[in-house]
Design a binder for these strands. Structure first.
Lengths: 104, 104
DNA sequence: GAATCGCATAAGTGTATGCTTATGTGTAGG
DNA sequence: CCTACACATAAGCATACACTTATGCGATTC
C-alpha cells in the first residue's frame, strides 16, 4: 500500500527536511548532506525510503545521482486529503492560497 | 512539532482505518471497535495518538466518549501540502475534484 | 588500470512503537 | 452503595526503525 509508504516516509522529521530541501531545487545526495549533520549511509537510506514512497525520484548523472521532488507522491496525498474534504473548515487560509494558485 | 504528530499518527494503517471510519460519522470507542478486531486498550491508545495529532476530537457523553474528525489536523496537512504546490502536476484528477469543491 | 569519488548495501545496535494483560477511574442503574 | 459498564492508564514484550561502521559497486581521473 503506497499510502502507507508515504505517511511512514513523512513521519520522520529528517526525511521531511530532506524533502523540503529538494523542493527548493533538485540536487545530488552529497549536496543534500551539506549543513545537515547526517552520515552518508543515513542519507542514502532516507532517500531510498522517500523514493519508494514516490515522494522523490532519481536521475543518474555520471557518478552523481540527482534527486528531485516526485509530484506523484504529493498527488497521492492530495487524493487522500480530498476524501475528507467534507470536514475541511470553510475558510482556512492555506486552502484559500491553494485555491487561488490552482485557479490561476 | 504538530506536523510530526500528524504524520506519525497517519503512518499506522490501523489508525488510518479508524480515522476513515470516523469520517463517515462520529461514534464512540466501542462502536469503532465493531468489525475491527482490535482490543479495547489498543483502540484507546490509537485514539489518544489521533487526538494529540488534532486529527480527532472527543466529546464526553455520560459514560460514553464520542469521537469525531477534527478539521484542524486536516487543515494542517493541507497547509503542509500547499508549501509544495509548485510541484503538483497540472491536471491530476484529484486536484480537479479538490478545486471544484473548494470553489464556491 | 589503479586510485578516487559518489553512492548503495550489509550487519549490528539502541530506542520507539504497537500490542498484550492487568488495573484504575468515572458514570449509570438497581 | 454496589455492581456493571465505557474508557483510560500502567507495565511488559516483540518488532520496526533510524542510526552506526564496514564494505561493495560503478563511474571518473590520472
Amino acid at each position: 500500500m503506497i499510502e502507507n509508504d508515504i505517511f511512514r516516509a513523512l513521519a520522520d522529521p529528517t526525511r521531511r527536511a530532506i524533502f523540503e530541501k529538494l523542493a527548493a531545487g533538485g540536487m545530488n545526495a552529497s549536496a543534500l548532506r551539506e549543513g545537515m549533520e547526517i552520515s552518508q549511509p543515513a542519507m542514502s537510506q532516507h532517500l531510498s525510503v522517500l523514493r519508494s514512497a514516490k515522494l522523490v525520484r532519481e536521475e543518474r548523472q555520471g557518478r552523481f545521482v540527482n534527486y528531485e521532488v516526485d509530484p506523484e507522491g504529493l498527488a497521492l496525498i492530495a487524493q487522500w486529503l480530498a476524501k475528507y474534504r467534507a470536514y475541511w473548515p470553510a475558510r482556512i487560509e492555506a486552502l484559500k492560497v491553494l485555491l487561488k494558485d490552482m485557479d490561476q
